[in-house]
Simulated scan of single mutants.
Amino acid sequence: MHVRFLVPGNVRHGSGGNKYNAKLAEHLAALGADIETVVVDGDWPVGSPADRQRFAEALDGGATVIADGLVAGGAPDEIAGAAGKGTKVWILSHMALADHDDLEAKALAAAAGIICPSAHAAAELGAKYGALDVVVATPGAASAGVSAGSVPTHIVSVAALLPNKSQTLLVEALSQLHNLEWSASLIGSHDPDPAYAAKVRDAVEHYGLQQRVTLTGELTGQELEDHWHKADLSILLSRSESFGLVVTESLAHGVPVIVRQGTGAVEALGGTGAGAALDLSDLNTLTMTLRAWLTDPALQQRWRNNALQARQHLRGWDATAATVLKAIT
């Protein structure tokens, strides 16, 4: 079957949504679907009239369309218009829009169906808009080499430098651990919010951590693999997260993870015991957890063993694509 996949053109860093979209398209094609990926430029999630007209044109003539919710959520009239011409528009909602509830509710109602990357994301939509028929297609994880770890232990945080990702909180917690041996890398793009990226750099300098905390910028390919290869612990402190692809990426490398309670990253970590989900209403919780991990070899080994065990049971992206393909056909 032919599927037109519409993705936003205004998210240019390596976001989880972008990675999910690319992997889904790749594996739908591997299952035999004819995938046409169209990047729709615009100031999404609502855009200008010209942006929405561009979106409407991208919808036109496609028998089956998957549209990223960042583009589709603010354009209910365009979706309804396409549906009236026989186009089945599936909205891939990575996360409910922060604003524009009225538009998003109408867009979801006009769509042929809704796909979410996690039960957490589906529940958030349901909490805002009532009962919805949602297909949950959790992300897969590519196979990866097992991390060798480092001496001293090395901590990685893989996420764009954005306020939601809370890198300043991590730097503050690490600043309380000067007396222990560790190093850390903050791996993610500085481009989406240069002002916040500057705050992260300033925090590193303020606490005198320049020799211990490295801001690498966004890394891909072998450069990123090199950092995973020396990682002992991964940290994702997002205040909101639909799933957290970096969690399964960590586990695929046998690296345990600390995440924030109340986010979709908890779903990604599951009951593996390969790390911890923390209530971060108090900074001391993170500091104490890191101190406990850094000073307790038995805890390190237990988390590591659980990560290696979880690594054996990760779903592949072929399962994600199969779930979506079954739904849209």
Rank of each mutant, 00 (worst) to 15 (best):
A30W: 05
P194A: 07
G149Y: 02
D279M: 06
D133F: 03
F55S: 02
R302P: 02
G149W: 03
T37L: 08
A98H: 10
S157W: 10
D193P: 00
A144M: 03
P49L: 10
Q309K: 12
A123D: 12
D51I: 08
H253E: 06
P49I: 13
A310T: 00
G264K: 07
A159H: 15
G42H: 13
G264M: 10
G69C: 10
E104A: 08
L170G: 00
P152R: 07
A184K: 03
L162E: 14
H120M: 07
A122Y: 07
T320F: 06
E181L: 04
T138K: 07
Y196I: 01
H253S: 02
L308R: 05
E181H: 05
H94V: 12
G47Q: 09
E223F: 10
H178R: 06
A274V: 01
V247I: 13
A75F: 11
A144K: 00
S240Y: 13
A142Y: 01
T220H: 15
G84C: 07
L251W: 00
L224V: 11
P194T: 11
P117A: 09
H253P: 02
A112K: 13
G149H: 01
V46M: 05
G16P: 12
L108Q: 05
W317P: 05
S238W: 04
H206A: 15
S185V: 09
T320N: 10
A33E: 15
A142V: 06
V156D: 04
T272F: 05
M95H: 15
K165D: 04
D102S: 11
K85G: 03
V156I: 14
A72F: 14
L70D: 09
A29G: 15
W228V: 07
A105R: 14
L224E: 14
K106E: 12
L170A: 02
T153H: 07
G188V: 01
I187S: 07
A144T: 03
E36S: 11
W293L: 08
A173H: 08
P297K: 08
I66L: 14
W317G: 06
W228A: 07
K230M: 12
I91V: 11
H190I: 10
W293S: 04
V259K: 08
Q167H: 14
M1H: 12
L280V: 07
R291A: 15
V200E: 03
Y20D: 08
P297C: 09
L219I: 14
A98K: 11
E249S: 06
E181I: 00
L237D: 03
V247R: 02
L308E: 11
A75Q: 08
L186M: 09
V3Q: 01
A110P: 10
A123Y: 02
D191A: 14
E124W: 11
A322E: 14
M1Y: 11
G275Y: 13
L92W: 06
G130P: 01
